[in-house]
Amino acid sequence: MRPILLSGHERALTQVKFSKEGDLIFSVSKDHIPSAWYSANGERFGAYKGHQGALWTVDVDPTTTLLATGGADNTMRLWEVKTGRELKKWEFPTSIRRCEFSEDGRQLLGVTEKRTGQLSNVVVYDINPDPDAEQTDEESLRIVVEELPRVTVAGFSSLGRYIITGHDNGSVAQWDAKTGELLNEVYSHEDGMSVTDLQWSADRTYFITASKDKTAKLHDTQTLEVLKTYVADTPLNSAAICPSPTEYVILGGGQAAMDVTTTSARQGKFEARFYHKIFEEEIGRVRGHFGPLNYVAVSPDGKCYCSGGEDGYVRVHHFDPPYFDFKYEVEKEKQRELGF
């Protein structure tokens, strides 16, 4: 599994995303330029110039036509993937921590940072999928998160029915995506330990959250019930669910350099960890980064994954055949039963 190193960024990576076909990788970092790469060979496809601050977040629509980015220059922008043209700029009083398209690509949400005098907001815009169309300035929904602590991550559930948010204190909340009403709230992670990532399963009926409390948890979208828990030995920054047929999750994290006096690569635990999704057992680790992993993403076709590190690199790993062949005895048994 020889990695491809994407070394185009000058500062720490903050988020990496695959296109829905799995052929492109979009990356944002604390430098100001989002980049797009071919996942097959790591060649750069293009860059999107315009932002004037560190970037926190990126997402791409289902048809890989539109790209959304957000960051510390208090803007969320929409780009045409193909040409790098800036289509729209939304401005906010504080920075944008997260943006995400709904599964049909018709809606885009953004999370604004909580600061003195400013509450965390979740804003939703209706998106016109035509790159040449005028995008609206009018938000279709604004959730002012007043009673709950700062929102760190958010996303649309299946059918765009709910918005799920993860919070600074380790809690996860479910909101009605039409009315903005708070429906449910669970305290799944350790109190005071921030939820650092939220990623969906392919059909968005369940999701995984990663937290500084060194665990990642699988939640049911409908009930917010914790289905599975994956225990690591280091604070986690990200967690991704591998698409079927493999039943794995990938966790990434590591001791932040500011938290330890001397951080060697060994000590920092800068590894991507693979866990079995159903049995909650660790299966393997992939080393390589020499700083914490800030984000891990799996290609929707399940054939490769990539990780963005504090060290400024994106590493793309294409899986070898044994990765797909590995099965627990009970899984093989089940397969035989089902007549494979």
Partner: peptide, 15 residues
């Protein structure tokens, strides 16, 4: 709606 969502359909097209 279709049985699978737009983003999942993208994968099928690619395949």
């Amino acid at each position: 709606l279709e049985e699978i969502s737009e983003e999942r359909a993208a994968l099928l097209v690619a395949d």
